[in-house]
Amino acid sequence: MTRGATLLVGLALMATGPARAERLVLSLSNHQVQISSTYTGTELTGFGVIERDAQTASRAGGFDVVITVRGPREAATVRRKEEFGPIWLNRGQQKFVAAPAFIGVLSSHPLSEIVDDTARRRLRLGLAAIVNAPEFTLDRGPEDEPYRAALVRLKSRDGLYVEDERGVGFVTDGFFRATIPLPATAPTGNYDVEAALFAGGALLARSQSSFELVKTGFEDRVTSAARERPLVYGIGTALISLAFGWVASVIFRRD
C-alpha cells in the first residue's frame, strides 16, 4: 500500500517535467546462479546507468543509489531465553511469517546522508527500516522490538542480512556498479533486486530486476529424488549404509 503510493509519487515526479527526467536502468551480471557440488557462495554484480535527456538540469549534490536485494520469504521464529528459577528457558517468542531469507542493502553513501529518517522509514530503505516496518511481523507495541533487533543480529552474523554503505560505486557520473555478496547458506529461490535513485534527499527513479538461485546437476537430482520418491531414497540410503559397513568389515578382517 505505502510502497504502491511511493511508486505513484515517484512516477508522478518523473512525469512532471524536463527537470525530473532521469531514468534508471539496472542490469545484473547473472539472472540464474547455479549451485553445483563446489558451490561456496557467490557474488553478483549489478550495473546501472542514469539516463538524462538534454534538458535535464545538472544536480549540484550529485546522485545517490540504494540497491535492495530481497531473497525468498520464509517463516522464522525468534525465541528468547529467560531466567526461570535456577535455569534458562526459551519463554518468549516472536514469529516472522514471511521474512526474506536474505536482505542486502547496498548504497553509495550512508543512508542517513541520502534521505531523512521519515523518508527512510516510508520507503523501507535499509535493514532497520525494512525489519522495523509494521507489516514485517505482528506489532505488539514495545514487546516486539528486541525480537526484530535479534533477527537482524542473528541473520547478520551468518551474512544473510547485509548492509554496505559503500557497496555502490560510481564509475562515472551516470554509471554505477555494485557487488551483491551471496553467502553459501542463502536458500534457493527468487531474489528481487530493486535500485532507487536519489538526489538532494528526493527519490527520482526506481528500477527492478531479479535473479534465481537454483541447484543443478547432481545436487538437483538428489534433491528431487528426496522430495519425489522419499521411500526409494530412504531405502537406498539405508542400503548404502549396510554396504559400506559390510565392505569395512571385509577390509579390516584379520581374524
Binding site: 517463516a75 522464522a76 525468534v78 528486541p146
Partner: peptide, 8 residues
C-alpha cells in the same frame, strides 16, 4: 546470546 532463530 539469549535469542535464537529457528526456521521451519
Amino acid at each position: 546470546e539469549p535469542f535464537s532463530l529457528s526456521l521451519p
